[in-house]
Simulated assay, not measured.
Amino acid sequence: MTDDREIRVGEPERQRALELLALHFAAGRLDPDEYEDRRGRATDAITRGELNDLFTDLPAVDDKGQVVERRPPAGMAARHRNPSQLIMGLVPFVAVGLFLATGRWWWFLLIPVAGVVARYLDGNG
């Protein structure tokens, strides 16, 4: 079976790559030197892999140059926290606040209790 990166491309694919590069240049994502370099590589491309490599650091765009795919910035992992994680992040601060307000140490017992409840609610218990 042939790897998709090794499939040969024709003139329509090269033209489409040039159009997309022009959109990225117009949007300011490429400086003039990068744009010219990538245009030359697109014109000389023989395989899909060579064309795809021109766009690895660029977002997907539609024909109007609008970003259609959002990626987190390089080095930034997308975080999706569930409510129990948020609660567990706040409970220690609440416990400290209640301790300072009342002088009762047992407010700190909220921390492990909240952890057990959060684990149960997440279905991991």
Rank of each mutant, 00 (worst) to 15 (best):
T2L: 15
D3E: 14
D3Q: 11
D3I: 08
D4H: 12
R5Y: 10
R5H: 13
R5Q: 07
E6F: 06
I7L: 11
I7H: 02
R8Y: 09
G10I: 01
G10K: 02
E11S: 03
E11T: 00
E13D: 03
Q15G: 02
Q15W: 01
Q15Y: 01
L20G: 00
L20F: 03
L21P: 01
A22Y: 00
L23N: 07
H24C: 01
H24S: 04
A27F: 06
L30I: 06
P32A: 14
E34Y: 07
Y35R: 08
E36Q: 15
R39I: 03
T43H: 05
T43K: 03
T43V: 07
D44N: 08
A45I: 02
A45L: 04
I46N: 06
T47W: 02
R48W: 05
G49H: 09
E50C: 05
L51C: 03
N52V: 07
L54A: 04
F55H: 00
T56A: 10
T56G: 00
A60I: 12
A60C: 07
V61T: 11
D62M: 03
K64R: 13
G65V: 02
Q66I: 13
V67F: 05
V67D: 11
V67I: 12
E69T: 08
E69N: 08
E69R: 12
P72T: 15
P72N: 14
P72L: 12
R79C: 08
R79W: 13
R79V: 15
R81D: 15
N82M: 10
P83W: 09
S84W: 14
Q85F: 08
I87N: 04
M88Q: 14
G89Y: 04
L90Y: 11
V91S: 05
P92L: 00
V94F: 10
V94M: 08
V96H: 13
V96D: 14
G97P: 01
L98H: 06
F99N: 06
F99W: 09
L100A: 13
T102N: 05
G103Y: 00
R104D: 11
W107G: 02
F108S: 03
L109K: 08
I111T: 10
P112I: 03
P112C: 05
V113M: 14
A114H: 03
G115W: 13
V117D: 07
R119M: 12
R119D: 12
Y120Q: 10
L121R: 15
D122N: 11
D122L: 04
G125D: 12
G125I: 11
